[in-house]
Amino acid sequence: MSEPLLSVRDLVVEFPTRRGTLRALDRVSFDIAEGEVLGMVGESGAGKSITGSAIIGLIDRPGRIAGGEIRLRGERIDNIPEDRMRSIRGRRIGMVFQDPLTSLNPLYTVAEQLIETIRTHLGLSEREARERAVALLDQVGIPAARRRIDDYPHHFSGGMRQRVVIALALAAEPELVIADEPTTALDVSVQAQIIDVLRDICADRGAAVMLITHDMGVIAETADRVAVLYAGRVAEIGPVRDVIQAAEHPYTAGLMGSIPTLTQTAERLTQIPGAMPRLDAIPQGCAFNPRCPQVMPRCRTERPDLLARGQGRQVACWLHAREGVGDV
């Protein structure tokens, strides 16, 4: 197998507090291949956004990376100085956040922001950069891009603004785009548009996408593979169809069953009892064990590692520990 674009190994992120150190991420490992869309799902507090922040080196203090490594094309980026990280952020890794207003500076026109990003990272002339910016806006589906480029962010509607953010994230031709809940703030009818734009434009440019969202529907439509996080740990990774239709981890199975769908009309939804533990009260052994319908004695004492199960699937669960070990 060729070298992955992004490789995260045993990543640990800790937040020291006065009541002890909280582990927001606990030995998280996954790869993103070139041009691939990896969905990252989990409930709030599962650690999906922190994973994104860790990769781009923007963890809120006093949090810190306490272990593991992050490699971009084989080169470590978790322990490099801030000025080198800055040149990777934006240039090699683009970012799209939930609220378009936080990614756009309200005091500058869209043109100024796009052109500056393009010129900083690609070293083009003003005129070339402007042409490129117009082309980008056109590609993300902004009508009359040449005229609208000189507008300020507040002149755009929510959906259009998120398109501008996507254009900005892609302006420097990054290899990877991290999109953190890119559609959560938008109306349903606009969400579909934005997801399509994000997927198509990244596919065109061969940029890989790490799509962080709590919305399984969005993942189902967009991602190639999906990683399911629970309490700061990876529960399961695999091709999106397999994970959704035949989840191996009991948590994933419960999660999928609890999502109401348009086609199913069951009287009751499957429900997982309880709630995800708080970071200061993660149970011993498998973090899911108190809620797990198939819990075994071993689950309460030993933490299962993420094991390869074939066909690109990995699962961290003792139910699947014995069979299939070793085949990758």
Binding site: S157, G158, G159, M160, D187, V188, S189, V190, Q191, A192, Q193, I195, D196, D215, M216, G217, V218, A220, E221, V240, R241, I244, M256, I259, T261, L262, T263
Partner: peptide, 24 residues
Amino acid sequence: RMLLDAVPDLAMTGRRRKQVEGEI
């Protein structure tokens, strides 16, 4: 109809939602 078409569904892996025109 448009609203129904726009809903993402788990059964729709890899399929496309119908494009909805414009915004509110």
